[in-house]
């Protein structure tokens, strides 16, 4: 996170960032091919458990961060629920045509969107960006010029936010109100993008030259302030997800929530 928040360190913070990253990507790819809503609900329960009990942040903050998840749920599911194809009509009003098939498919999409969102937030809440990039350099052999560029860029974000605030005030005080429609929309983008981009490019250019002079490009014989390795917690996270996977599979067969096994083929 750009601003340091106070939180309790948990075992999730101690996991190797590269490992955590790859594991989350692997889960993403796996879950894209899960078409069984019973299984998906169980995975959602597993991810929510990780989010609420092991991220080490206070409950109030976790609930606040969780609000956009509802938006994700709504945006991922509504189109499919209202306009999806299907045979068994539940509700029909003008263009809106809700069928049993589209309803379940939409809910499935909504839940999946939430699982991805939760896993993503669990990752960002428990990983410091600096450690992530050090780990990517050490474990996945990311070139230092990319890693240090990212880290420098992240450090520049607070300055950029401050600039944005100044810009907003400056435009407001001068009574700059954009026109309407697509032209006004473009003018609004321009009023913010041009000053922000030009200032930031100048600054980035200056910093990059200084970094090159300081040999940040050096690949060989590099020493690192942070040495990142593996620990027993990496195994613990892997076991957690294997456990969730096995339980989810077991529960979806023996205690299904819906009588549907594949949202793509219902009938």
């Amino acid at each position: 996170m750009p601003f340091e928040l106070s939180y309790r360190q948990t075992w999730l913070h101690k996991i190797n960032p590269s490992f955590k990253f790859l594991l989350v990507i692997a889960l993403f790819i796996y879950l894209i091919f899960v078409d069984n809503p019973n299984l998906m609900v169980n995975y959602a329960i597993g991810s929510v458990g990780l989010y609420f009990f092991f991220t080490g942040h206070p409950w109030k903050r976790l609930l606040l961060i969780a609000l956009p998840f509802l938006l994700v749920f709504v945006t991922s599911s509504t189109s499919m629920i209202f306009f999806g194809e299907g045979e068994e009509t539940l509700f029909n009003w003008g263009l809106v045509h809700i069928t049993k098939e589209s309803l379940f498919r939409g809910l499935h999409l909504g839940i999946r969107g939430m699982v991805f969102a939760i896993l993503g937030v669990v990752f960002s809440l428990t990983t410091r960006p600096v450690l992530l990039f050090y780990s990517l350099m050490q474990q996945l052999k990311l070139k230092p010029k990319y890693a240090y560029s990212f880290m420098a860029a992240i450090r520049l974000l607070p300055i950029m936010l401050e600039e944005l605030q100044t810009l907003r005030h400056a435009l407001k005080v001068r009574g700059a109100v954009g026109g309407k429609g697509i032209r006004g929309f473009y003018e609004k983008i321009k009023a913010f993008a041009i000053p922000m981009l030009s200032q930031s490019i100048r600054r980035a250019h200056r910093i990059a030259i200084a970094m090159e002079a300081k040999r940040f490009l050096n690949v060989n014989n590099r020493t690192n302030y942070y040495q990142i390795g593996f620990s027993k917690f990496d195994v613990l996270l892997l076991l957690y997800f294997i456990g969730v996977g096995v339980l989810a599979q077991f529960a979806s067969v023996n205690f299904p929530y819906f009588g549907i096994e594949d949202v793509r083929v219902i009938g």
Partner: peptide, 19 residues
């Protein structure tokens, strides 16, 4: 390949759009 300047400028531009 890309120089550090190119990379840093690209990432800065990208982060503005990321925001």
């Amino acid at each position: 390949g890309l120089k550090l300047t190119d990379i840093l400028v690209t990432i800065i531009i990208a982060l503005i759009f990321g925001a």
